[in-house]
Design a protein around this nucleic acid. Structure first.
Lengths: 352, 352
DNA sequence: ATTAGCACTCGTTCCTCTTGAGTGCTAACA
DNA sequence: TGTTAGCACTCAAGAGGAACGAGTGCTAAT
């Protein structure tokens, strides 16, 4: 990338963004010239600021106010300017240790992650539970509930359970369900949940004949259901701490959006391989977030991205800190989950 | 109860409360005298208001402002004055129909109840899931997970499932767990979950001898876990619509309290037999709710109170409407749950 | 190229004044 | 004796205006 701005302009822009992130007040030339890292007179700075305004990096609320960074400025700041901080060892140690105290259930770990993320950053956090597509079958029970419906209770190798209501094809009896349950527990444990119904098909044909296909379809519903993932959102009320939301009607519309529960879409996993995404203001698809920035990071177990989490804050958020915290969280969560899920011993692959 | 106030004072008080609930602005004597239901001159009203203030039913924000009802006034209003409205048939029909569309899962019904409750009242709703203490065992699986831990998956006659991580006593093998599972499915279905571990004890003695007691204790953990109940809280952001929360810092402290997730305590079931409770302002245990009123109602299945729900709003809430909506909701939820849970056929009672 | 100097802009703050909704009290009235 | 008209008084809220000051842009000197 070619140098968009000369070094001096960069420095001034950094100083303005840093200051604005801290104070939320328009930054003036005199304030800047007092800083140690800028050795220029106010007048010179004013000239530079005037240029930066023309280039679209700064905005002026009104003639006699200081300058405020534009979204373009944040973009540049985030990609080229800010120092990509790492947390101190104590901080990351603290995070990891807290997370490791919650090793009994995946849900607990996710919740604790969300809580810490919002607690440390003081913004709103969104954490998605890991996808279980690669989970392997450990135990299954098909339990008839009413005429035509059955409950499938699946335990995966990671110890997580899920239960799904299934519609039982006509003609399948409780005895059939029992037979299928035993068949699956005997022959299919260790297979990926998503593969089970296909792999099982030939065996089913032997056991229950012509209804095998409809039963396989029913079992497919289990892996569909398993792909539904929960999302923890914590710290929405934190936003009220920032002058951006001093106006109650703004606060209300933000909080209502959060309560709708579709915010997780903003945190949807990035394309494979992309670790971190920063979306600033209007870059967000959701118009309700046009004054917010959303930073998301994916987390991995065993080298594979299985989920993501994010932080939502005002565009004037502390990008550097949030990036650092998210990195650490992602690593910690990944490693804690790995430990939890490593109870998976027998892996049988589906030969396609 | 003896008549605390004469009829005219009652009328004036009702008018003031009604007006204040509507407008949130202090009510003056002239405003009142313009109302059709009060045929008195402002001066007369002033005299009465002065008396009511002395008696503690009214308060004055400052000398030259109108009067505002005190908590004592709301108390009186709620117990003796307000007309206990019922919903129209269309309204209650609407509620019932909406709820009946969610018959597949208890959790869905609870969530929809909370959503409607907050949607209709425009306050914050809290709905507790029904207690399952009387649920009866339909199916159980004990699945070894790691050395020393097992997962208990329980399906009740109502079709709801729960899974609990149990600590397996030393010396109990996977085979033992299997044996116990079969024993329970063969002999204990239809019993109340809470009774199972006790009733099973003699049978366990036969099967696994001296370890029976520790196993029974482990199984007791299942019913402990089953008594954990989820709570849905919806519409916290609604509070921002009211001038009481125009101050962001108030809004923040309310929302933070909600987010802490302990609000359900305010909705804890009333003593048996009490159907509805109204707690006004300082009557709430939680100091964070001292400017709020909480109305809770219990709901029943088969004549037994199994849960409760409530609405949280400013003390200046529309008591009459909320009471009516809660009554209707309680009945609808009760009847919908009854239908869902009536799948319970075989009941075996524990002979004590 | 930088900076000191200066006139100018404009939001914020702080007064003061006015307005009006409300009161309490007193005296007249039915 | 209860009700009401009248009046002086209070006080929050709003309007208007001066003073302030943080900021700018421009020009001329360094």
């Amino acid at each position: 990338m070619t140098q968009l701005l000369d070094v001096r302009k960069m420095n001034i822009l950094r100083a303005i963004v840093d200051d604005y992130i801290l104070t939320a007040a328009p930054v003036g030339s005199r304030t800047l010239s007092k800083r140690d890292d800028i050795e220029l007179s106010p007048a010179t700075i004013r000239n530079e600021m005037s240029d930066l305004t023309e280039l679209g990096f700064l905005e002026q609320p009104h003639t006699s106010a200081g300058r405020v960074p534009s979204e373009k400025a944040y973009r540049l700041y985030v990609s080229n300017i800010m120092d990509r901080a790492r947390l101190t060892d104590e901080e990351s140690e603290y995070i990891r240790r807290h997370l490791e105290q919650r090793v009994s259930e995946v849900g607990d770990v996710i919740r604790e992650t969300a809580r810490m993320l919002s607690g440390i950053t003081n913004y709103t956090s969104v954490v998605q539970s890991p996808k279980m597509k690669n989970a392997r079958l450990k135990h299954i029970s098909l339990i008839p509930v009413t005429e035509g419906t059955a409950l499938a209770v699946v335990v995966t190798n990671s110890g997580s359970t899920s239960s799904t209501m299934l519609t039982v094809p006509a003609g399948i009896t409780a005895q059939d369900l029992d037979k299928i349950t035993h068949l699956m527990n005997d022959r299919m444990t260790g297979y990926k949940i998503t593969d089970v119904h296909r792999t099982l098909l030939p065996l089913l044909r032997e056991e229950i004949g012509e209804q095998a296909d409809s039963v396989a379809e029913m079992l497919g519903g289990i892996s569909d259901d398993l792909s539904k993932r929960s999302v923890e959102v914590v710290g929405a009320a934190n936003m009220l701490d920032y002058p951006e939301y001093a106006d109650v009607s703004k606060a209300k519309s933000f909080l209502s959006e959060i309560e709708k529960g579709e915010i997780f879409k903003e945190v949807l996993p990035n394309e494979d391989g992309v670790e971190m995404t920063i979306r600033i203001g209007a870059e967000n698809d959701n118009p309700e977030l046009k004054d917010c920035s959303v930073i998301t990071v994916s987390y991995s177990v065993g080298g594979e991205q299985v989920g993501s989490m994010g932080v939502i804050g005002p565009t004037r958020m502390d990008y550097s800190k949030v990036v650092a915290v998210l990195k650490c969280m992602s690593e910690s969560l990944g490693s804690v989950l790995s430990k939890m899920l490593k109870g998976s011993e027998s892996h049988k692959e589906l030969k396609e």
